[in-house]
Design a protein around this nucleic acid. Structure first.
Lengths: 103, 103
DNA sequence: AGTCTACGTAAGTTGTAGCTTACCGTTCGT
DNA sequence: ACGAACGGTAAGCTACAACTTACGTAGACT
């Protein structure tokens, strides 16, 4: 799965948004969400695989936090889409003006 | 479904990325993708509902193009996440320095 | 060593997202 | 008016994603 697909799931996005505010443990996240702790673990695994979060041990707990590089990568992707859309639009306008001359 | 969820599906993202380059008709899109034309129609319906694309009639065809406002909204969402992540990080650093004084 | 806490993983269930085929409406051309 | 092109929608199927419970494992504390 890729980054956008990972954030496509509502529960996973809820987890991710909470981690944006501050690092959290798995059980802590599960306590604030309407799903079980293992479900949170599975979602965190996906988020970790796509590079959106990182984890570190803290005693028996495991603290997760967002990986800024993941957010940055998403922003870069959308920026590229944005640029391409603008370029296509400009080209369309230019072409329309060309046809305007001919008619 | 929301915007991020809509772009979470690979097929839907493939459709969207092609529309970023230039406006296209439904059958034209289906011809370039490994799914049937009705499937493309259904995906376009979703993309339209979340405001990522707009359509206009062109004879018997129907041309779809991206709605720049949708891309902009996604960018704004990620920018907000980005800012919150940075703020949280700065606060964490500040707190760490506070504790450094005490010890 | 024993126990408790916190977490990951395996196994199994279920809703649903995505796909297909079939059908119908609309628009253009002849 | 008739046929063809194009596309939306309904109905049904299926694979899978998300969830649960149950179990195993690692660390901290006494």
């Amino acid at each position: 799965m890729d980054r956008l697909g990972a954030l496509g799931d509502p529960t996973r996005r809820a987890i991710f948004e909470r981690l944006v505010t501050r690092p959290m443990a798995v059980g802590e996240l599960a306590g604030e969400l309407p799903v079980s702790r293992p479900a949170v673990s599975q979602h965190l695994k996906v988020l970790k695989e796509v590079g959106l979060v990182v984890d570190r041990a803290d005693g028996t707990r495991r603290l997760y936090r967002v990986d800024p590089r993941g957010v940055q990568a998403l922003r870069a992707y959308l920026d590229e889409l944005w640029d391409r859309a603008l370029a296509a639009f400009a080209q369309a306008v230019e072409r329309a003006e060309e046809e305007g001359k001919q008619s």
